[in-house]
């Protein structure tokens, strides 16, 4: 039971019940769809980017508490970050969940509450789904830019 409190911390339960920045975005600069075929969870991530800054992130989808809270906290963490900072945070979060330490990892801040999922290897993908989807949406922006 202690393990459950460690995994499902109050912050996570709160984000699950009241996800922030939830819902489709009108006219996003980029968008990506992610899914976890193992569990059927799906998520859409919408981005607004201006001058290389992530101005807004929204998400929509059906997932478990880990997936939903991770997505919700991600939207808060990324808003206002430069593309480079967002990439660095994505990589650092991924490293922390997979027990990799790299010298250029940045502090995770509030996102650290999600690290309890490390003890449940089958659930790690739940925590990373939104982030991978964000990464895909961000790449799409860059590709659009690079083809111009």
């Amino acid at each position: 039971m202690d393990g459950m409190r460690e995994l499902y911390q109050q912050v996570i339960l709160d984000h699950n019940k009241n996800p922030r920045n939830y819902g489709a975005m009108e006219n996003p600069d980029s968008f990506a769809h992610g899914n976890n075929p193992l569990c059927g969870d799906t998520i859409d991530v919408f981005l607004r980017i201006g001058n290389g800054i992530v101005e807004a992130v929204q998400f929509e989808g059906a997932g478990c508490a880990i997936c939903t809270s991770s997505a919700s906290m991600m939207t808060e963490a990324l808003t206002g970050k430069s593309e480079a900072e967002a990439e660095a945070l994505f990589k650092s979060f991924h490293h922390a969940l997979t027990d990799v330490a790299e010298p250029d990892d940045v502090p995770l801040g509030k996102l650290a509450v999600l690290l309890g999922v490390k003890d449940y290897p089958v659930r790690v993908k739940c925590a990373t789904l939104a982030w991978h989807t964000f990464e895909a949406a961000l790449k799409r922006v860059k590709n659009d830019v690079s083809t111009e």
Binding site: G3, C64, A65, I66
Partner: peptide
């Protein structure tokens, strides 16, 4: 309001 995977993980505990 509870995803089946959260049910499964918690029941396992």
């Amino acid at each position: 309001g509870v995803h089946p995977h959260d049910i499964g993980t918690m029941l396992d505990s």
